[in-house]
Amino acid sequence: MKIGTYLLWAAMAVGTGIIVLLGYFVQIDQIPADSLIGNIFTLRLLIMGWAVLLAAVALGIGLFNLFLVHWTKVSRQGPGWKYSAILIVAFVLTLLLGLILGPDSRVVLFLFNSIQVPVETSLMALLAITLSLAGFRLVAQRRDLISLVFVGTALLVLIGSGPGILSTEGLFFSFFAGLRNWLVQVAAAGGARGILLGVALGSIVTGLRVLLAVDRPYGE
């Protein structure tokens, strides 16, 4: 029984994955819609639609789990339960208002604009302080060549980006501006391309392992 279900799930993952993957490499507009391949591509669109729906349902399950975790915390009055109570009230209120009035209603947008947007931008603003602190800590705690290159590059880019540290006129600034451009457009561009290619190769290998059913993250 277990082997049966495992095979079914693996076949489901491999089958749907291959159909979706084919869509990336075949010119769909040159295939007659009533042919076998044409029908497979129609099925591909359906499968993509199902996957989007399942992602939404998975999000719902995640939200329900978030609610349950904090509900349990409040009912047991564990450490920080008051914050969990705030979270539950905010969650339920926003969800109900969003479901009843719609997510683009004036009331929901009021919550979005007055709380969510300021929190997001303020957290990003805080990042300026935490990033600076992290930079100072790196200099203080790790004094090897790689750290030196990292901090030195960051400083040169900051100086060359001006205005602020240096006047934007004069030979001194134009030297640092040129150096910054070279660092960004040559050294960092090559490094970033290497990182991107490395990430892409890693993603392809991980994805292919799933598509070949070597890795089975869907269970058993």
């Binding site: 291959i18 990336y24 993603s203 799933v210």
Partner: peptide, 23 residues
């Protein structure tokens, strides 16, 4: 596990296809 398998299969295909054609 059945719908999760579908989601994982489609996700893996999108990752592979996107990584090849996009990066």
């Amino acid at each position: 596990g059945f719908p999760v398998a579908l989601l994982v299969g489609v996700g893996a295909a999108v990752v592979v296809g996107g990584s090849i054609t996009g990066t």
